[in-house]
Each structure stands twice: as C-alpha cells, then as structure tokens.
Design a protein around this nucleic acid. Structure first.
Length: 260
DNA sequence: ACGAGTACCTGGCAGC
DNA sequence: TGCTGCCAGGTACTCG
C-alpha cells in the first residue's frame, strides 16, 4: 500500500516524464471512485499544461500552469501506470505520446480531493524533530503507533513504515504515546526519518502480493530491508508477536525481545 | 480534545 | 475441486 516512499517514487517518474506536457484527452472509467469530481469537471482539464508533480505526505499533487491543482490519493491499492492499461482503471488522460492510467482495485483512492491538514514530514525541513514529537505525545494515552499513523500529527507513515520505525527505535507499538522517555522520543524521530529516507532511496516497498509497482512497472527494492512487517521472524533473529488488540484497526507486529 | 469503533471496497487465500 | 467467509488497510466519519 502506498505510503510516502511509494508516492514519492511515483511522483519523481511522472514529473520527469510529463512536466511541460499538455493534456489532450481525459476519460473516466466505470465504476469509478465513490468520490471523484464529475467527468464534466475533469474534462475542463483538457488543454491545460502540466507544470509538474509535487507531493505532501501520501498525497500526489498534479500542478497545472494555470494554477489549478488536481490532488490524488492512491488509497491502498491505487497505481499509476504509463501506457499500460489493465482492469480497474478509474480514469486516464493523454498527453503527448503517453497515456497515463490511474488504477485502483479496491477504490479507496481519491481524486480531486482537497488537501487536508497534515502534520510535518519526517526528513523534510518541516519541523519534525524531538521537540515536536515530545509535544504531540505528551499526555497521550493512545498507542504510539496510532499516533504516528495519524496524518494530522505526522504525514507519510502508514502501517509498514510505522512498524519499522518503532522496531528500529526499540519501542513497542502499543505503548502509550505519553509514556515515551526523552531518549526514546529522540530515537523514534531518527528512526522515522531513516526508514522513510531509505524507502525513498530504494524506490518503495513491494511486499509479496500487495504489489506496489512504479509507473513503469518496476518493483521497489526496500522490501529486502524490512525488519518486521509481514515477517514471522525479525531481522534481529527473534520470533515476532502481534499485539493482542489491533492498533488503529490493524494488526501490529513487534519483537517482544528488542522492543520495550 | 481524545480514543475507539466502523464504513468504504474487493482480491486473495485459509478452511472446510 | 469448489464454495464460503474473512482479512488487508488509509481516511473520514460517528459516538462516548
């Protein structure tokens, strides 16, 4: 499922390939997302020139020279492909010699949505530091993993990277946010930045069947460096456990030996 | 303000 | 083999 590194991988490829191009056609598939601008609104993008692609958290932003933006969220099964169609195409557009397809089997993706309020991004010069993390965790009784995945507090982390960051910092996912020591908070800041940076450098994570592929159909390489997520044994050599209660509605893995 | 729960959706897979 | 039913997960919503 696309988190910050996967979305950034998509952004880089689309930007490099499509910046400066003009939209010549736009088509909407069926059934579409339950939230998508009407086809008539999308059709008004025909003739617009693509200034480039930017990103905020997990949101991909298509910027036009006219000043208009189209905000895209890939949900958990969204994919963008260049010149390669397939099932579950929700919309597509043509520009130059390329056709860009937006696929989404589970239809959790969104298009044209307004960018919501998002927290700072780990690794960006954005204010995500130990002071900030201490401030948002102070007094919180909810599990630290749920807080890390709350996009209003921290932008970009989903289940995979939050799981990995907590493992790297030696902190159990179910710990109350407010229970972290200063030392743990500092370790967690560093590990969030590290796991996301490595994910971006390696072109995202392509786990077994939850296959992320970039717009050119290439898998990421970060899965070879995943320590916990989707594994039975951690990279530390210990058997992993799932938290008794799901966190934020999803199962959470940790190493009972290395994470306190 | 906070935390917990649920709807949204469907491919894939475990279990019978 | 073929069926059922459950699980995965990001966001937005409701409820206490």
């Amino acid at each position: 499922m696309p988190e910050l590194p996967e979305v950034e991988t998509v952004r880089r490829i689309l930007h490099e390939r499509l910046a400066g191009r003009r939209i010549t056609a736009f088509a909407v598939g069926r059934p579409t997302f339950y939230r998508l601008p009407p086809a008539s609104a999308l059709k008004t993008l025909i003739g617009e020139s693509i200034k480039g692609f930017s990103r905020r958290g997990k949101y991909l932003i298509m910027e036009f020279s006219s000043g208009r933006d189209l905000v895209l969220h890939l949900g958990m099964s969204g994919r963008v492909t260049l010149n390669s169609s397939g099932p579950h195409v929700r919309f597509q557009f043509e520009t130059g010699n390329d056709t860009v397809f937006f696929h989404d089997a589970r239809r959790f993706g969104r298009v044209g949505c307004a960018l919501p309020k998002l927290g700072p991004e780990p690794g960006a010069a954005d204010g995500f530091d130990a002071h900030y993390l201490r401030t948002i965790l102070r007094g919180r009784t909810g599990p630290v993993k749920a807080l890390l995945m709350d996009q209003k507090l921290v932008a970009g982390l989903g289940n995979i990277y939050a799981t990995e960051a907590l493992f790297a910092a030696g902190i159990r996912p179910g710990r109350a946010g407010g229970s972290l020591t200063c030392d743990e908070t500092e370790r967690l800041v560093k590990s969030c930045i590290d796991v996301l940076r490595r994910g971006v450098e390696l072109g995202g994570s392509t786990l077994n069947d939850e296959s992320f592929l970039d717009p050119l159909g290439r898998p990421g390489r970060n899965q070879d460096y995943v320590s916990v997520y989707g594994r039975k044994m951690g990279s530390c050599g210990h058997a992993l456990k799932a938290t008794r209660k799901p966190i934020g509605g999803r199962t959470s893995l940790y190493c009972p030996n290395c994470q306190k």
